[in-house]
Simulated assay, not measured.
Amino acid sequence: MTVYLDHQASTPILPTVRAAMQPFWADFHGNPHSSEHSTGWTANKATESSRTKVANYIGADPDEIIFTSGATEANNLAIKGLCIPKQRQSQRKTILVSATEHKCVLESAAYVAQTTGCSVLEIPVNGKGHVDLDKLRDMLSEDVLLVSVALVNNEIGTVQDLASISALCRDAGAILHSDFAQAPSAVDLMDYANLADMVSLSGHKFGGPMGVGALFVSRELKDHIEPLFHGGGQEGGMRSGTLPLPLCVGIGAAAEFHASEAGAAMRARVARLRDLFVNKLQSSRDHIRLNGEKLASRHPGNANLRFEGHDADEMLQRLQPIVSASTGSACSSGITEPSYVLSAIGLTSDEAQASIRFSFGHTNTSDEALTAAEAIIAVL
């Protein structure tokens, strides 16, 4: 049996999500955009119901939700779509991104800088991974068009003070985009409603299916986003292409679950398992350190641990097939240099190369937490 501790890379589908999707693989198979017959109407009704669930989950209106293939596409659409010259609301042309953003945010911003004449500046973070609010305040000049800061970090689980970031951006007249890909499994999103002008989601990060995500774009901004895809004009002209009916149903069901009391209870249960695991490890060895925030103040499933004097890649190999974990983002696979997120919070190269991200989720049990800890102790 393998103990899966890589839920921040991808979560198994929730049972309620699987059940909601099942009929739409066969019984209800229509094209949601076929408007001339009842099969298409049924499909359209299902996608619009899902759109409403996603909107309700983040405190938005359904017409502000655009379905995408995932958070990578949503982040690209938000940043590139807003920043091309003909869509800019003003002469502003500076983009600010936090130093610990996901690669797709950093690369999208870099692409815009290379192709449109915009400039990109990185907002520094402190040793816990929080954006330096004083530095952000100083950087928010009248030339700043867009600020992009993820609510929850994908490697160290830091939860940003989005309310303060939002207030600073609004005072400066800058647009705020936030990557919420890791947030649904970590926090109650209604606590963060109306703080950002654009928000990205990814289905498979919170118990939904792979291959679907969403971008919230506030109504005031919708006319200022240039689509990445051109074609039939679906999604209000912002994202052409036939919607994947079962996947849209799935992300809606996942949003509905996480907005419920059951979702809150699951997050609390996951935090207890993560704490059990970390406490077991740290009570057995003195050289195991936590990277980032204290446990109670981060993503409830995240434990980014530093095993001083050890090589993380070698440890992960020796743990196979007992424990599945990772040294960082799955989207950066193949990159061998130390994690730029860990470097940004002040770790040395050796410290970063001794660090492993363990991420718990809804499928884990207390027995698995202890089994994984014991396997790691044996490897050490």
Rank of each mutant, 00 (worst) to 15 (best):
G173Y: 09
D191W: 00
A196L: 01
L168P: 02
H204Q: 13
D171H: 11
D188Y: 00
H177D: 11
G203W: 05
A172H: 07
D188T: 12
A167W: 07
S185D: 12
S178K: 04
A163T: 13
V212S: 13
V187G: 06
K205T: 12
D171I: 04
F206N: 07
C169P: 06
V159I: 15
G203Q: 06
D171T: 13
S164W: 04
I175S: 04
A167L: 14
S200Y: 02
S178W: 09
N194D: 15
G203Y: 03
F206Y: 14
D197H: 14
M190S: 14
A172P: 07
D179Y: 01
S185F: 12
V199A: 09
A183L: 02
G211I: 11
N194P: 00
A183M: 03
G207S: 10
G157V: 00
A181K: 07
Y192I: 08
L162N: 13
G213V: 00
N194M: 04
V159A: 06
D179C: 02
L162E: 15
L168A: 15
A183E: 06
P209D: 06
P184S: 13
Y192V: 10
S200H: 03
Q160C: 05
Y192E: 10
D171G: 15
I175H: 03
D161L: 07
S202W: 03
L162I: 15
A196N: 03
H204G: 03
D171M: 06
V199K: 03
G203S: 05
G173F: 10
S164I: 04
M190H: 13
M190V: 05
D179W: 00
H204P: 02
V187P: 04
A172K: 09
T158C: 13
A193F: 00
I165G: 12
H204C: 14
A181M: 09
L189Y: 06
G211W: 10
G203A: 07
G207R: 07
A193M: 00
C169E: 10
S178P: 11
A181S: 15
D197W: 05
G213N: 04
M198H: 11
L201E: 04
F206A: 07
V187D: 09
V199L: 09
G208D: 10
D188G: 06
P184F: 13
S166I: 10
A172F: 05
G207F: 06
M198Q: 14
N194F: 01
G211C: 13
